[in-house]
Design a protein around this nucleic acid. Structure first.
Length: 483
RNA sequence: CGAGGUGUAGCGCAGCUUGGUAGCGCGUUUGGUUCGGGACCAAAAGGCCGCUGGUUCAAAUCCAGUCACCUCGACCA
């Protein structure tokens, strides 16, 4: 055993301090979350990764339904003419759309784009469906794939094709649309905290960073372990931009024909990348219990010995009946090998059961987040496990919150912003003049972008000056390097 | 798309400069001994050396093209 400790394991994960992006790719690959196909930048989501996605879908869908939304499905292909209707929207997406120009052996009369997002095709349908104020609001979500032909790709964070959900709603008034936009941002925020255990920052995007075609964009942003920002979900108030070009009108109570007010909101498989980069450590993945495809892994020790497998099976049954996602590892490997394997894969709880435990009517319970190990009795095991899963969630959220708080730095001038972002590897929080040219200049010169303008603190900017250009400030804002 | 780098067994890599039988470690398969933090012994299987073309008696190796991936920029969920 001693000689093995000295042995360098060829396939160990690169330490995250050494090279964060190498660490990230190692984790994705070794935990079998996804793989690249032969098509440029298109990912194959493997069963373990897809299991996480299914849980994300479940958590989000529950929240969407609670807030009155329904699921539907719209076409993959969008006629060129539809995409081109809204000027800003086309301009934003044109560089990255994939085209279909042939069907069978025939050249298509009108080329089709593979949807990069579905506003246009959905609006074309809403124009037919909406006639009266009685038809409003329309509250529809769709789960689908979209394609954006990006120049460079990264696992989960930026792939040519990705899975997401996009909600599209139409309302009678601006206020209702705005309330919907904010409600969905709250839904995402709730999901981030309570399912992903990720403390996000929410706020409004600047003119420069907002969605192509939106009136206002709101976002939730998270700080990754290396201090870079990841946009994890967005909610847009589209105003009447799309309604006007797609002619979505309704006859209101007052007898007037009016354009509808719209919103759209989305979150993608990128969330999985966020999970990895916020919670992961040098042993690999660390999954928040609510999104763990396997919440408890049972490792029988000396499984060939009398009674071990029976006891393990019984325990699996008890946990399953309690609604816990549990799996037993019966592979022919040494226990230590399995411990490492499941820690790498991020399973929140490990239960070890062997001859000694059977004698003492106990099992060994180990948590992934703290590596704390204790013996517990078989009685009331399911309850203990459930309580522990809840505790692990809380602890992961706390740890991530501490990390977030320790990586946000108030900055008064450009040097301090750069020090916060590049020196201390975090977000800079500053007063800002609100001018697009100032923001663009900074982005071009330093590669640092605005993340969001937080709510309820904007009055703090009064009397301050912009940290970047020194003009009078109008906003408080976060800056960071972004994925 | 600009600059650089890499494609050799499932994974990680050596071999290439100076052409001449396809190598190593881990993993895999089979049998046995093991099993409480990455086990051991024995035997075995596994390669269009990314792809296409060229030079040559002979190409993993030299040349050209092409595709994919990685890093850094620009762009984006």
């Amino acid at each position: 055993m001693a000689k093995n400790n000295e042995k360098a394991f060829v396939q160990d994960i690169t330490p995250m301090e050494e090279d964060f992006s190498r660490w990230y790719t190692d984790v994705v690959k070794r935990t079998e979350l996804m793989d690249y196909s032969d098509v440029r930048g298109c990912m194959v989501i493997r069963p373990y990764g897809y299991g996480i996605w299914e849980l994300i879908q479940k958590e989000l869908d529950t929240r969407f339904r609670e807030t009155g939304h329904e699921n539907a499905y719209f076409p993959l292909f969008i006629p060129e003419s539809l995409l081109k209707k809204e000027a800003e929207h086309v301009e934003g997406f044109a560089p990255e759309v994939a085209w279909v120009t042939r069907g069978g052996n025939e050249e298509l009369q009108e080329p089709l784009v593979v949807r990069p997002t579905s506003e246009t095709i959905i609006c074309s349908m809403y124009a037919r469906w909406i006639q009266s104020y009685r038809d409003l609001p329309v509250l529809i979500n769709q789960w689908c794939n979209v394609v954006r032909w990006e120049k460079s790709t990264r696992p989960f964070l930026r792939t040519s094709e990705f899975l997401w959900q996009e909600g599209h709603t139409a309302h009678a008034t601006y206020d209702q649309a705005q309330e919907e936009t904010m409600q969905m941002l709250r839904v995402y925020r709730d999901f981030a905290y309570n399912a992903m255990a990720i403390p996000v920052l929410t706020g409004q995007k600047t003119e420069k960073e907002k969605f192509a075609g939106a009136r206002d964009t709101y976002t939730m942003e998270a700080i990754m372990h290396d201090g870079q920002a990841l946009q994890m979900g967005t909610s847009h108030n589209l105003g009447q931009n799309f309604a006007k070009v797609f002619d979505i009108m309704f006859l209101d109570k007052d007898g007037q024909r009016k354009y509808v007010w719209q919103t759209s909101w989305g979150a993608s498989t990128r969330l999985i990348g966020g999970l990895i980069m916020v919670h992961g450590d040098n042993r690999g993945l660390k999954l928040p219990p609510r999104l763990a495809p396997i919440q408890v892994i049972v490792v029988p020790v000396a499984a060939h010995k009398e009674g071990v497998l029976d006891a393990a099976n019984e325990m699996v049954g008890v946990l399953k009946r309690a609604g816990i996602r549990v799996k037993m590892d019966t592979r022919d490997q040494t226990p230590g090998w399995k411990f490492n394997e499941w820690e790498m894969r991020g399973v929140p709880i490990r239960l070890e059961i062997g001859p000694r435990d059977i004698q003492s009517q106990q099992v060994v319970l180990v948590r992934r987040d703290t590596h704390e190990k204790k013996s517990v009795t078989m009685d009331g095991l399911a309850h203990q496990v459930q309580a522990l899963l809840a505790d692990i969630h809380d602890n992961m959220l706390n740890t991530a919150t501490e990390h977030r708080n320790a990586h946000i730095f108030e900055a008064q001038n450009k040097a301090e912003v750069l020090e916060a972002v590049d020196g201390k590897k975090g977000f800079a929080y500053t007063a800002w003049c609100g001018e697009r040219s100032c923001e663009e200049k900074f982005k071009t010169e330093c590669g640092i972008s605005s993340r969001c303008m937080p709510f309820d603190v904007q009055q703090l900017a009064q009397g301050k000056v912009c940290a970047l250009c020194g003009k009078p400030a109008t906003q408080m804002i976060y800056w960071a390097r972004a994925y």
